[in-house]
Measured scan of single mutants.
Amino acid sequence: LQLFIKTLTGKTSTVEMEPSDTIENLKAKIQDKEGIPPDQQRLIFAGKQLEDGRTLSDYNIQKESTLHLVL
């Protein structure tokens, strides 16, 4: 599924993920695209901070969801 990652600067990146992927996997993919180390990334979806060990489906993240990346 395609996700949009929006940064505080207003920049939006697109990443392709599976519902079974963990937040950790997602942060690794963001690191590949943006060069931001996972330990500096905080991802927010629906007002919640996402935890590394959980999966996208745990948070009911659907295709074309927008996640907010806070550093």
Rank of each mutant, 00 (worst) to 15 (best):
A46D: 13
E51Q: 10
R54C: 08
E51S: 07
D39H: 13
S57Q: 13
G53I: 06
L71E: 07
D21C: 04
T9Q: 11
K29C: 05
K33Q: 13
Q41D: 01
E16N: 11
I36E: 02
K6I: 14
L1K: 04
L26V: 06
E34S: 12
T14C: 08
I23L: 04
P38I: 15
L56C: 00
G53V: 06
Q31M: 13
E18M: 14
T7H: 14
T12Y: 10
I36H: 10
D32C: 07
Q49A: 11
T14V: 14
F4T: 11
L1Y: 11
D52N: 12
Q31L: 10
K48G: 06
G53C: 06
L43V: 06
I44V: 09
I23Q: 00
P38S: 14
A46S: 08
E64Q: 12
S13T: 15
Q31E: 10
G10H: 05
N60S: 09
R42W: 10
S20L: 09
N60F: 08
D39S: 13
L43P: 00
S57V: 07
K6D: 04
G10T: 03
D58K: 02
K29Y: 08
L50M: 06
K33L: 15
P37T: 05
K29R: 11
I61G: 01
N60H: 09
I61M: 06
Q49P: 10
D39L: 09
L3W: 02
I36P: 04
D39Q: 12
L56V: 05
G53M: 08
M17R: 01
D52P: 07
L3M: 04
V15Q: 03
E34N: 10
P19N: 07
L71T: 09
I23H: 01
D21T: 05
K27S: 01
P38Y: 13
N25Y: 13
T12W: 12
T7P: 05
L71A: 08
L69Q: 02
N25S: 13
F45T: 01
N25W: 10
K11T: 10
S65C: 04
T66Y: 07
Q40C: 09
K6L: 11
D21P: 00
F4A: 05
E64G: 15
L26S: 00
K6G: 03
R54A: 08
K29P: 00
P38V: 15
T7M: 15
L67G: 02
K27C: 02
Q41A: 05
D39V: 09
G53K: 11
A46E: 14
K29M: 10
M17E: 00
D58P: 00
L43A: 00
K27W: 03
T7Y: 14
S65K: 03
S13H: 15
D21F: 03
K27H: 02
L67A: 02
Q41V: 10
K48H: 11
Q62A: 10
I5V: 07
I36A: 04
Q2C: 08
T12I: 15
K48T: 12
P19L: 10
I5A: 01
N25C: 09
E24V: 08
L56K: 01
